[in-house]
Nucleic acid binder design. Sequence first.
DNA 1: AGTGCGACCTGATCGC
DNA 2: TGCGATCAGGTCGCAC
Length: 273
Amino acid sequence: MPELPEVETVRRQLAERLNNATIIDVVVWRSGREFPSQANFVNALKGRRIKSVDRRAKLLIWRLDNRKAITAHLKMTGRFLFVDQNYKQEKHDRIRFILKEKNKKIFLVWADIRQFGFLKLIDESELNQIVSEYGPEPLDVSAKVLAERLNRSSTRSIKATLLDQAIIAGIGNIYADESLHRAGIRPHRCVAHLSLVERLRLAQEIQNVLQESINQQGASANDYVDTQGQKGGFLNLLRVYGRAGEPCRTCDTSIQRTVLAQRGTHHCPTCQK
DNA sequence: AGTGCGACCTGATCGC
DNA sequence: TGCGATCAGGTCGCAC
C-alpha cells in the first residue's frame, strides 16, 4: 500500500524536520517483533543526531551520527505522525520519539495497526548489504535502463516481475496495475514475451505514474496517511486499481478484477493486450 | 536456481 | 443484531 510515492512523501516530511535533529528520548509504548531487545534499542538511540532521512525502495533510512542507521518499513499500515506535547497514546501507537532541533522539541509517534511494519537499528555494513539487494530506483535511471531490467527469460508474469524489488525497486500492487494499464499490457502476460517496444513503453509509464503520484503526495487506497494524518491526493486519479466493475476511463469497458501473483489485479480487457 | 505460496496481523465489510 | 468468513498486501522463509 505505501509504495514508492507514499514512502517518498513520508520521507520528505520526515527529512524536513528530522535532519540534524537529536534524539532526546524514546518511549516504547508497546514492543513487538520490530525491536527484539527493547532496552538496547532505546539506549542506542538516546543522544544520537540524525544526519539524513533517506529512502531506498520502500525502506526509510535514518542515518545516525555514529555510522549506524534506523531502517523503517511501513509495510501496509505503519505510520509516522508528528504530534504535540499533549498527545495521548492511541490504540495502535507503539513508540514515541522526542527529538530536539535548534532548541525546538519534536514529538513523533510510530503506529502500526497490523504490526507488519518494523523499525530496526543496524550498522553501516548491514545497511549496505540490504540496499545493494534492491534493483534500481525507477526515478533515478533512464526508461531505457528500466526496460532492460524487464528483459529477462523467465516464466513469470509481468505483474509478478514488477512486484519483485530485486528487479525494480519500489513498485507495489497499485503501481504495478496502474503502469500496466497505461502501457496497454495485460498483467498476465509472460515477461519473456514482451516486445522491446512494450518494455520501453511500460518503463516510461512506470516513471510517469510514480512521478505523478509523488506530485499528489501519494494515493490512499486504504490505510495510508502522511505524517500529518493526511490522505494522498492520487486516489482519484487511479485508472484501474480498486475500480473493479467500474468503467475504464479510456474506453468505458468494465474493469476486471482477477487474482495474479496472489494479489488482487485490475485491468481493462479492451485497452490492455 | 528460480518460482510459488503460506504466514504474519487486524479491521472493515459482507452475507446469512 | 450478531457472528463468522473473507479480503486487504509487503516481504520472509520454506518447499518444490
